[in-house]
Amino acid sequence: MNTFEQAVEAAEKHLLKANLFYGHGMGDAYDEAVYAALYCAKLPVDEDIDWEAQYPSAAFLKLSELINARCQTKKPLAYLTREAYLHGYKFYVDERVIVPRSFIGELVLDGFAPWVNPDKVTDVLELCTGSGCLAIMAADTFHNAHIDAIDIDNAALEVAQLNVKDYNLSERISLIKSDLYQAIAHQAKQYDIIFSNPPYVNSESMSNLPSEYLAEPHIALAGGQDGMDLVRTIVNQAAPLLKPNGILVVEIGNEYAHANAAFKQLPLVWLDTSGADNAVFLLTRADLERL
């Protein structure tokens, strides 16, 4: 029988032999091996590992099968385990949604400080919700708020519904099928915060994506020639839906140059995150009214 350390070493060795990409919550082969070993042994991901403890034979067999599937399919590990973690939150995922990852997540958990007072936020809109992960985190942060979470894809909304139900937030999060603002454009309701992690990968980058990203829904990644197709609509149509002191926060990942070019007439405020200082921008309603 193997020790836990030996099980992880065997999994890591196997992963390293494959041409894999690690960009879905795991930094490298070692991280994936540790997570996979914990998952197969049915242990919490934050478990303090006893490296010399015996690793169960049944779990080792399951681990071998999981790692083989990861190497052969080159799918993100989250699709094989049907779970993903983001900032300590656990979510159900499958191929209907992208694997939760976001620069904007930590900003949500920080209540978008100092731009809003979390206690006074009552209405929040998320566009392109996918698995619903950020909407759930927003509901957890803004205790007095109702969250409207929009996605154009029925399949993604089905996954989001599973996660919203799992967190017992069905009364505080409304999942809405819409092409961005279309379903709500003529409502009287306005929001304290509109935020989005939309599809923003430019066409050149899309043509060079690793297999792991190609396993994800194309609709959730592709942002057009410069990555800004949906972002332009999000920015250009936001003002009427924001309260007078409302803010718009948009993640654009690696598309800093394209965002600056697309919105050179606007005073984009770039928000610092632990992953980057030029991946998320903020605009106030007053800024947007300049359009």
Rank of each mutant, 00 (worst) to 15 (best):
L214A: 03
L214H: 11
A215D: 12
A215M: 06
A215C: 14
E216W: 12
E216N: 06
E216I: 08
P217M: 13
P217N: 07
P217C: 08
H218G: 01
H218Y: 15
H218I: 11
I219M: 15
I219H: 04
I219E: 15
A220E: 13
A220N: 14
A220H: 13
L221P: 08
L221T: 07
L221F: 09
A222W: 02
A222G: 09
G223D: 04
G223A: 03
G223C: 01
G223L: 04
G224D: 13
G224L: 11
G224R: 08
G224F: 06
Q225P: 02
Q225F: 07
D226L: 05
D226I: 04
D226R: 02
D226Y: 09
G227L: 10
G227M: 05
M228W: 12
D229C: 02
D229V: 08
L230Y: 03
L230F: 12
L230H: 03
L230W: 00
L230V: 05
V231R: 01
V231L: 07
V231F: 02
R232I: 00
R232W: 03
R232A: 01
T233W: 05
I234A: 00
I234V: 04
I234R: 05
I234G: 02
I234C: 00
V235H: 00
V235N: 00
V235M: 03
N236P: 00
N236K: 06
N236F: 11
Q237A: 11
Q237I: 03
A238V: 08
A238Y: 01
A238K: 07
A238G: 13
A238N: 14
A238P: 11
A239C: 14
A239W: 01
A239M: 09
P240T: 14
P240D: 14
L241P: 05
L242V: 13
K243H: 05
K243E: 15
